Simulated assay, not measured.
Amino acid sequence: MELLLRSATLEDFDAVNAIIREGQEEHAEALPDRFTRLDHVVAMGWYRSFSAKTDKEIIVAVLDSEVIGVAMLEMKQSPNYDALVPRQYAYVNELAVASTHQRQGVGKKLYEAATQWARAREAASLELNVWEFNERAMQFYASVGMQTLNRTLTSNLKD
Rank of each mutant, 00 (worst) to 15 (best):
A8D: 10
V62F: 08
L63S: 07
Y91E: 11
P32A: 09
M72V: 14
W46A: 14
A113F: 02
S125G: 09
L128M: 13
V67C: 07
A83H: 07
I68P: 00
H40L: 15
I68D: 00
E66V: 11
A90P: 00
Q147M: 11
K56T: 03
T148F: 05
A61C: 03
Q102G: 09
I68A: 00
T54K: 12
R21V: 12
K158Y: 10
D82Q: 09
Q77N: 14
A18K: 13
V92Q: 00
K56Q: 14
K108W: 11
T115E: 15
M146W: 04
V62N: 02
L84N: 04
M1D: 09
Y141I: 05
V70I: 06
Y47M: 06
E132C: 04
D33L: 12
I68N: 01
D64V: 06
S49M: 06
A61E: 00
D64P: 11
Q77V: 07
M75N: 02
I58Y: 02
A96C: 06
D33V: 06
H40T: 12
Y47I: 14
A120Q: 13
V130C: 07
R6S: 08
E132K: 14
N129S: 11
W131R: 11
L157M: 11
Q139W: 07
K109R: 13
L63E: 14
E122Q: 14
R121L: 15
G145E: 11
A43H: 09
L95S: 01
I59L: 15
G107S: 10
R21E: 05
A124R: 08
N129Q: 13
M44A: 08
R48S: 12
E57H: 09
E25Q: 14
R119C: 05
L63G: 00
L73G: 01
A137N: 02
V42A: 13
Q102K: 12
L84V: 06
T54C: 13
V130P: 04
L5N: 05
D14S: 07
L73V: 04
L110P: 00
Y47E: 11
G23R: 04
L95G: 00
N134S: 04
A124P: 02
Q147H: 09
E57T: 01
I19E: 03
L73Y: 01
A30D: 13
A28F: 02
E74P: 00
N17G: 04
R48I: 12
V16C: 10
E135F: 02
L157Y: 01
P32F: 03
L10K: 06
R48N: 15
L5I: 15
N80E: 12
F13Q: 03
V41I: 15
D159S: 14
Q139A: 03
R6C: 10
T36Y: 04
T36I: 13
S51I: 15
Q24R: 03
Y141W: 02
Y47F: 08
F140C: 03
V97E: 00
D14R: 05
T36D: 08
E26W: 05
D33N: 15
T9R: 11
D64K: 14
V92I: 15
D159Q: 09
T9C: 05
R21S: 06
Y81W: 04
